[in-house]
């Protein structure tokens, strides 16, 4: 199993290299001159622009620049500096990422805590009024744009009731509203997937067997049905979490949370090449790690998958009479 993990981590490196090369090259093709952007708004003479190009090393051949960039990236984890304000991208990312992470973690937790029991319940009580009402409510929440929900939450809980602050970071209470606003969108999909997965498993033979052993409904549903329904659910959780790590931008802007989202979007808007490249490489990296973790969770949940991971190293699996 350890070998599997190590193998996956090793494969990560060429993946990220490819992402880095693609991003770096793409940014080269984008119209606009980094030197002009670095000089800022206002009028600049050709002379100034040339000097800036020299100092930024833009006149060096593509391969040299690519090599330098990759070298810095791999050996020093250095993403370079922002061409707009000269700050270290590495520092900015490490300062901002924890905030995005907090929101992502919080949202996933809320989604699971609310969505899983709801999905299981509506599967067990499929096609009853309870099921239909829950479908209606979750779809309604799904259709509401997250920024609108965010603003409504602020109006109610911050302005009217005064229980929670409307923006900024600080203690736990600053993250309550952003997390709620962020999780509502994915709740419907998650609940429906849980429900669908559970429905399939509930009608399977193994549930009949469990019932025939005389186990209580609760033990049958949560002890036998749910563990078998988890695989697609885990996939969804993993993907959503990976997505959110890229920054729940709208939420972060509304609630003024200094996360990765606005950083990247502002970088794109101001054509800050280094920020965009660095940000995307970082997001690719964290997404890959999340996918690896998801795959590991599968192994934890389903021994057949675990056997696959282990067996890959040897020829033929283990099966005997």
């Amino acid at each position: 199993m350890i070998r599997y993990v190590v193998k996956r981590l090793v494969i990560l490196i060429p993946t990220l290299l490819v992402v880095a090369i693609i991003m770096f090259t793409l940014m080269d093709f984008v119209p606009g001159d980094p030197a002009v952007i670095a000089l800022g708004s206002g009028n600049h003479t050709q002379e100034e622009i040339e000097l800036k190009r020299e100092s930024m090393g833009l006149n060096k051949p593509y391969i040299t620049r690519l090599g330098e960039y990759l070298g810095n990236l791999i050996f020093h984890f250095d993403f370079g500096t922002s061409i707009v304000d000269g700050t270290q991208i590495k520092t900015a990312i490490s300062d901002r990422f924890p905030n995005t992470l907090k929101i992502a973690l919080g949202s996933i937790l809320v989604t699971i805590i609310v969505g899983l029991p709801l999905g299981v319940r509506t599967a067990v009580r499929a096609n009853t009024w309870e099921d239909k009402i829950s479908l209606f409510i979750t779809l309604l929440l799904d259709c509401m744009p997250s920024f609108w929900v965010g603003l409504l939450l602020v109006l109610l809980f911050a302005l009217k009731l005064g229980w929670l602050p409307s923006s900024g970071v600080g203690g736990l209470k600053y993250f309550v509203l952003p997390v709620i606003a962020n999780s509502l969108g994915g709740l419907a999909g998650f609940t429906r997937q849980t429900r669908a997965s559970m429905l399939e498993v509930i009608r399977s033979d193994l549930v009949t067997t469990a019932r025939s052993k005389g186990l209580s409904e609760r033990e049958v549903i949560y002890g036998h049905a749910l563990p078998n329904a988890l695989i697609p659910i885990i996939t969804i959780v993993g993907m959503r979490f990976g997505q959110m790590l890229g920054g729940a931008t709208i939420i972060e802007v509304i609630f003024s949370i200094p996360g990765l989202g606005p950083y990247l979007v502002n970088g794109i808007g101001s054509q800050d090449y280094t920020v965009v490249t660095g940000g995307i490489i970082f997001i690719a990296f964290s997404f890959a790690i999340i996918m690896l973790l998801t795959d590991l969770v599968y192994a934890f949940v389903d021994p057949r998958i675990k056997a696959q991971y282990v067996a890959r190293n040897r020829k033929g699996g283990r099966k005997d009479e």
Partner: peptide, 18 residues
């Protein structure tokens, strides 16, 4: 499972794989 037990037709799907 206690007084009355049942054995099913398809052993491949009757057991809980996890």
């Amino acid at each position: 499972g206690h007084e009355i037990s049942m054995i099913f037709q398809d052993p491949m799907t009757a057991l809980n794989p996890v």
